[in-house]
């Protein structure tokens, strides 16, 4: 495997691309840095928001299903609970359906979990580099593990609350999707 050129936000100058300029390692590397910088940042964010108290019986998952327009990979995700109130698991997962509507199982083999009493704006997840994200929660959480890292065009994701603590309210789930084609 080759060595990726480190992405960097660079400014192209007229002198870099003018007639008669030598096509050098430096210039090609500069282009590569810029391309990788752009490619690293091409993703779109799907956001599931549930205001108020949530539970698996009150959540209208079909109304918030996500359609996947192009083959993509999961770049990052975060799950926020605005207020946990009591102890107990709060968790969301997604059922993945293929282009024919056949279920392929859950997106997460271990879904993100927040389980800590009386905290506000607790947030867990993973960033685009695979690092854990944790805010306002110090125990009883799981960042989550993907079962599927890549999704094909025309798949759909149907969100579902898989656990909720008593009187927990305000769930937000961000899913970053990086197009692969």
């Amino acid at each position: 495997m080759g060595t990726p050129v480190t992405s960097e936000r660079v400014t192209m100058y007229v002198e870099d691309v003018a007639y008669k300029k030598s096509i050098s390692e430096a210039i090609m590397t500069k282009f590569a840095k810029a391309i990788n910088f752009i490619m690293d940042r091409i993703y779109y964010n799907e956001r599931i928001v549930y205001h108020g108290y949530f539970s698996n019986s009150t959540f209208d998952s079909l109304a918030t299903q996500i359609f996947i327009p192009t083959r993509c990979e999961i770049a990052y995700w975060t799950m926020t609970v605005m207020s946990t109130r009591s102890a107990g698991n709060n968790s969301m997962n997604f059922t993945v359906y293929d282009e024919n509507g056949t279920s392929l199982g859950d997106l997460f083999s271990t879904a993100p979990i927040i389980n800590q009493a009386s905290i506000s704006r607790a947030l867990v997840g993973k960033d685009k580099d695979g690092n854990n994200i944790n805010q306002n929660t110090t125990s009883g959480f799981t960042n989550g593990t993907l079962a599927l890292t890549e999704l094909q065009a025309n798949y759909t994701l149907v969100p579902k609350i898989t656990a909720n603590s008593t009187r927990a309210f305000g769930m937000v789930f961000n899913l970053g999707l990086r197009p692969l084609e």
Binding site: V17, Y19, K20, S22, S24, A26, I27
Partner: peptide, 27 residues
Amino acid sequence: IIEIPDYDDSDQNAQVDFKIEYAFLNP
């Protein structure tokens, strides 16, 4: 950064080694 200079179009015998081995941006 060290690079080879821009294409010298004032003299076809200038920079001969660079011109035959390395690419420059065409007009």
